[in-house]
Design a protein around this nucleic acid. Structure first.
Lengths: 237, 237
DNA sequence: CATCTTTTTTGAACATGTTCAATATTTTTC
DNA sequence: GAAAAATATTGAACATGTTCAAAAAAGATG
């Protein structure tokens, strides 16, 4: 009943060929100066075929981003299962590995953000159509946080905050022309230092009122994923 | 020596006609489904003329955003000069008036963010080509903060933080389908409350070390406008 | 295997952003 | 006011993302 099973059916093969060629071309030249005709030619198919597998040129980038996400999950799981690490180390791995994966494709990455401000666009990186990807991304941070002892509200807040930080770092990475994108790495380190520091402070009961204020503001305005009705999952089955 | 003086030369007149028609059409339908041919037809000129005045379709949106910015400056200046207000009130006016101006054009606004992730694009809202706009926007917050008594580092940090907050609120506004976009307004209020609260805390000398950490992190990585060499202005003439 | 159904592939046609050489108009110069 | 220079305008031509009816290939059914 599902599309393309394990065995690489003919269709899946073409899809992959188109995807691979497209990525190669995007990397050699760049997204905008690569035409769908280029992609089709290189893949040895007609333009129509490319559209049979990808609903638009940008959809190829979305497929790319899904691959990135999978690889990210894989790497984080691998690293965290290897040995026991403290929170700071775990978060660092989560952030770092994402940057590692994506670093060579800074130009492609930009396209992912192209419809940030257009909610109804199927590729809007904040829109409903990408909810699953987003959820996955946040879940990865939840996984990295693991069973770390944290006040309830912080447990709710931290993953989203880290996701937002990651988005910011991706943007920074795109603009970062320092050799090896060291600048972005440094900002990441610094931001994680600050995060740990703030977490320390936040555990202090004196900060309770402030925390409540923040969480309530976000919750009431549906800025925390669990509180978007469309997303809410049964909490106590 | 300058283009188009006070007297509306013929050219400026056409430009304005094209701009007006374009905006009207963008609002009636939307950005993407309005074609340059539509715009040209409605303005009673040939397509080429539209391109003589606007280097691209998106450039019309940039022009729109400049108008918004001007209007924003005007309103803030007007409101702040009317009577003496406290910091919270001043910041609120700065934020609020921006939302007021832009609210009816939530769909257009999205286009402003279209090249966020593409530094070299002339319309990249974080790129070098829009540096002036950004600077203006931050300056407006500096103006709103006025001569409020603040530690030096906060004086450096706050305007940028407010600018970032404003960008976030604009994105939120675009996604906000609550009646009258109340949700965005509430988040704004809440965010300003928190800002004031944090400012209060930050004035406490005990937070000095943390503040220094934050400022240094941003400065070292050129994330504060004054420290981008390309931007630096003589500070002590 | 013959037939029917589904999946895949094709490529011409279309829509629309953009360019540009040619033309017209306006402004400047003397 | 005529000639020259600068500015404005035209619209056909181009490039490229996308669509779609038709054809081909693969798979299912009997």
């Amino acid at each position: 009943m599902f599309k393309s099973l394990a065995t690489t059916g003919k269709g899946e093969q073409t899809r992959q060929a188109i995807f691979d060629c497209a990525l190669r071309l995007f990397r050699e030249n760049d997204f905008d100066s690569t035409t769908m005709r280029d992609i089709a030619d290189r893949s040895g198919v007609a333009v129509g075929a490319a559209y049979y597998y990808f609903s638009s040129k940008e959809a190829i980038i979305q497929a790319y981003y899904k691959v990135v996400q999978e690889e990210h999950k894989r790497r984080v799981a691998e690293a965290l299962e290897l040995r026991t690490l403290n929170l700071r180390e775990r978060l660092q791995i989560a952030m770092q590995s994402k940057l590692d994966i994506v670093q060579e494709d800074r130009n492609l990455l930009g396209v992912v953000f192209r419809y940030t401000g257009e909610p109804n666009h199927p590729l809007s990186c904040l829109g409903p159509s990408t909810e699953e990807l987003r959820r996955d991304s946040i879940d990865l941070f939840i996984y990295a946080i693991g069973s770390e002892r944290l006040p309830k509200d912080l447990r709710l807040l931290l993953p989203v905050a880290l996701w937002a930080l990651q988005m910011g770092l991706l943007i920074l990475l795109i603009y970062d022309n320092s050799p090896g994108q060291q600048r972005t790495r440094k900002v990441m380190e610094g931001a994680l230092d600050l995060t740990m520091l703030l977490l320390g402070v936040a555990k202090n009961p004196l900060t309770k009122r402030l925390r409540v204020k923040i969480v309530r503001l976000l919750q009431e305005n549906m800025l925390l994923p669990d509180f978007d009705p469309a997303l809410s999952r049964p909490e106590k089955p």
